[in-house]
Design a protein around this nucleic acid. Structure first.
Lengths: 151, 151
DNA sequence: AGTTGACTTGAACCGCGCTTCAAGTCGCAG
DNA sequence: CTGCGACTTGAAGCGCGGTTCAAGTCAACT
């Protein structure tokens, strides 16, 4: 194989192909401290294959609405970092709320795709599922202000 | 009450306060076709209270990773728009996949917040939950390329 | 020795989703 | 009539998350 360098390390092109990310994105992530090359072959980065798992985690968290900075914080967590662990637990709760919102949105979409309402937004079920009909208090979905994963 | 105009319509300031969105964001949404003022009081926008529900839906979809353009497409759906309905159903499936990813991420976060691994990213459970260990095929989480809600 | 071709760098650029700013338009209180 | 404050406009600016570009380095093949 011409793919693995001296110590079974991967070239940036390999990592890009395997991870589905652009090399520019990998360099960007490195600049932001999300990943690091295990070594250098001259100028060239040489990655430990484990970086692929790390990138999987990064992509997953990103798709969950985490910012680059938040992901960096997660990745740098050690066992002694109690504050960070607490923040992770808090993040888990945020994600849980996001799951609830997504679930209602998904159900609304599924219903809307099959029901026959004209503006479609006026479908009663759609309204009910997404919350906030004429109820001044109780923010079931719109509560995103300050709690949602979208900054 | 000094809040409701001639026909029970709301001023942009009212809508901003009730929805938690900035007036600038509301004007931005109007420019993008997401909402519309029911009337004008001179220059001033006068909104139907129903816009609050619409904004709830918008915020919900946005927090689910939908782009402004995608939300606009959803909101303009009518009963005769079969193609759009199909796309809504497809979107529902995407959201469903996102829910799966988020669920695994949440479980990983919860576990990681309590387990005692040093780089934390190396925790075997964390790895397992997030997928993509050394499996070239089968993209359980990283499949975001082309299917995920994050553009 | 020379020519690929994949990598390197920093800096410039891009689209998105707003926010901010400057300048102007109202209605109403004093 | 003269503020005041809440609105209006378009244009410019900002942070994020990268991509693109120009110029350079390096290993390997011919």
């Amino acid at each position: 194989m011409a793919e693995a360098g001296p110590g079974g390390l991967l070239d940036i092109g390999e990592v890009a192909r395997e991870s589905g990310l652009a090399p520019s994105a990998l360099r960007f992530y490195e600049k932001k401290g999300l990943i690091a090359a295990a070594a250098r072959n001259g100028l060239r980065r040489a990655y430990d294959p484990g970086v692929l798992h790390r990138l999987g985690l990064i992509t997953c968290a990103r798709s969950a609405g985490f910012s680059i900075a938040e992901v960096a914080a997660l990745l740098s967590a050690g066992p002694g970092d109690e504050g960070l662990r607490e923040r992770m637990a808090a993040k888990a709760e945020e994600v849980d709320e996001a799951i609830g919102r997504l679930t209602r949105l998904r159900d609304s979409l599924r219903h809307a795709a099959g029901c026959g309402h004209d503006p479609l937004v006026e479908c009663p079920e759609f309204k009910r599922a997404v919350g906030r009909v004429p109820d001044p208090d109780a923010e079931p979905c719109t509560s995103a202000a300050g709690a949602g994963p979208v900054p």
